[in-house]
Design a protein around this nucleic acid. Sequence first.
RNA 1: GGAGAGAUGGCCGAGCGGUUGAAGGCGCCUGACUCGAAAUCAGGUUUGGGAGUGAUCUCAACGGGGGUUCGAAUCCCUCUCUCUCCGCCA
Length: 423
Amino acid sequence: MLDPALLRTDSDSVAARLADRGYALDTAACRALDERRRAVLQEAEALKAERNRVSEEVGRLKRAKENADALIARQREVGDRLKALEQAEREAEAAFRDFLAGIPNPPHPSVPAGKDEHANVEIKRWGQVPAIEKPLDHVELGTKLGILDLDRAAKLSGARFAVLKGLGARLERALIAFMLDRQTGAGYEEVMPPYLVNAESMYGTGQLPKFEQDLFRTSRGDGAPLYLIPTAEVPVTNLYRDEILPAEALPLRHCAFTPCFRSEAGSYGKDTKGIIRQHQFHKVELVAFAAPDQAEAELERLTANAEAILEALELPYRRVLLCTGDMGFSSQKTYDLEVWLPSQATYREISSCSWFGDFQARRAAIRFRPKDGKPAFLHTLNGSGLAVGRTWVAILENYQQPDGSVEVPKALRPYMGGLEVIR
RNA sequence: GGAGAGAUGGCCGAGCGGUUGAAGGCGCCUGACUCGAAAUCAGGUUUGGGAGUGAUCUCAACGGGGGUUCGAAUCCCUCUCUCUCCGCCA
């Protein structure tokens, strides 16, 4: 959610920044909605002020046992006018709010302008890409090792689901524990949140109202729907919705392991092979709440914390700064971490670390109280640390041996009961 | 699933149709007293929107939404959540 005041005073520069990410801001419509809203509001307030004044007078007369019928008759008219006006006020507020809710976050000045992923900028590369003669992909490797079963998953649930078995399931579990241990060690307090959340929570982080088609929605009889979380970002960020945190609490850092559920509407035909793109996958998420002046440094820290997992697992990766056109709706600056996949001979996204400015905080009303001052919106950040399923894929492919077995990364062996090779 | 009780400011807690944005207490801040502290005394202490350069003015909010009324924290409806008892259950 944008700052309405900013939109009023500086709509041209906001529009210019939004244009960079491919969003055409209708400044005229915006101004009209805002002016309408304020006009109705002021009229209603003036009327209410009058009503309050006269009501007080009525009370005084009544207490003095005097006749107040004339005033009461006049009040009745005011009440009728007010009723109509309040309806108009509600509508004007809602129209303006809905308009604001549909506007993406303007990119940070440090973000390169560009239309799509081709304009992204590689920031760094880490690690040695393994020399593998004829690399197998993770599906072949996993299926032959008997640790991945996509056919039976399809029987159970359809396409884009997976069954992990034996050491495959163990590897997934080991990765989860490994990542959580590392991130709690890096100062993130672990959280186990609900996997079903209400619409308000989805609105707070920006999934609703625009992206409902990407979510799984559950219904229960008469009650309000609950949504399966697409990422732990949603419940963990919303933890502090409608709250004011003390300044000393910042930066506040959480990590959370959760399953993630995505309907992947509109992604038909993309990544159909394997478990790169699933309806359900596991992720360890990092979420941070920071004061505005801490936030930029926090993004670097958080991204480094995600990279530390790849480095500990000795997986080659690169860091990419997303251009304006490739960022998510709520983000103002995003780094993607991409891991090397030998079967595709390319880097594929395994983490996305974003700084949202006060965009989410404003939607979700998450504030902090500065040392001496009024409550202010804080900044939210999050990043995958990491996507577990894709890490599983990266390990199989990067650590594959000529005989089809897979070496277990050294850092992970303690979590695998000391196992050195999956065969 | 059945029966009942409740939701008020940072916290506890009063109010149950008319200067109550809200008594009282705790906490916190400021001042006085003190060499300093404690104790005591005095004052202050919610948030959001709108108007104004500003002092300031104004509106809204007592779980959410709706209604009754000239006027609602107070009355009615509805939803959510919490607690107690019974049933069921991992």
